[in-house]
């Protein structure tokens, strides 16, 4: 029972490191509101990594045989990095750029009466979405503007977009959700 309890406690190490990352991110965002958002996230992730090292180094020698210590360290680091990925893209970024979350925010603010489709589209519409995203892409250098026309800039995000198209083909059998709808599948 004691070995199980010790193992369960040690298993929490990457999760506690994630908590440190989130707390650091919140504190940095509140203290430095002008800081670019991705810088705040990087600071949070680095704080969590430092917390992981501080929490893992003392018990790792006792918990694992010398030959296994690297393996345990790698497992905890991989677990922490996966949790940070989830936090950034699966939680923080939902509030930042998810259309479903934004629609829910607008509808919740309307209370029990709700909103008609026209009222929803007055508060949040495709024009606003395109303008906001284009603004972020321009600020990040992924898109550049010349004489009122837009061209691709830094390629990293474009590669990500192409990788997503590949994954759509693997999972959905179509390069976009609308291609599926057009072909009559769902």
């Amino acid at each position: 029972m004691s070995a199980l309890l010790t193992a369960a406690t040690l298993g929490l190490v990457p999760f506690v490191a994630l908590l440190a990352c989130i707390v650091a991110h919140v504190l940095v965002s509140r203290a430095l509101p002008e800081l670019p958002r991705h810088h705040g996230l990087v600071l949070g992730a680095l704080t969590g990594l430092a917390a992981l090292a501080a929490l893992a180094l003392p018990p790792i020698g006792l918990a694992a045989a010398p030959g296994d210590r690297v393996g345990l360290g790698v497992a905890w680091t991989l677990t922490y990095l996966s949790l940070v990925y989830w936090y950034v893209f699966g939680f923080f970024n939902l509030g930042e750029s998810s259309r479903r979350i934004r629609l829910l925010v607008e509808l919740r603010a309307a209370g029990d009466r709700g909103l008609t489709r026209a009222k929803i589209l007055a508060a949040y519409n495709a024009r606003m979405i395109v303008d906001a995203r284009l603004g972020r892409l321009l600020a990040g250098g992924q898109v550049v503007e010349r004489d009122g026309r837009y061209f691709t800039g830094k390629p990293l995000m474009l590669w990500g977009a192409k990788a997503l198209v590949l994954l759509k083909l693997v999972f959905l059998g179509a390069p976009s959700e609308f291609a599926r709808v057009r072909s009559g599948k769902r």
């Binding site: 990457p14 991989l78 949790l83 893209f89 699966g90 992924q142 995000m157 977009a161």
Partner: peptide
């Protein structure tokens, strides 16, 4: 569990088209 969470996060970007990615493409 951590890999599963990050996988579901990635899959949500596969399931619905992202406006940012669509603009880039």
């Amino acid at each position: 569990a951590a890999l599963f969470l990050s996988y579901v996060t990635t899959y949500s970007a596969v399931q619905a088209d992202s406006p940012t990615m669509t603009i880039l493409l």
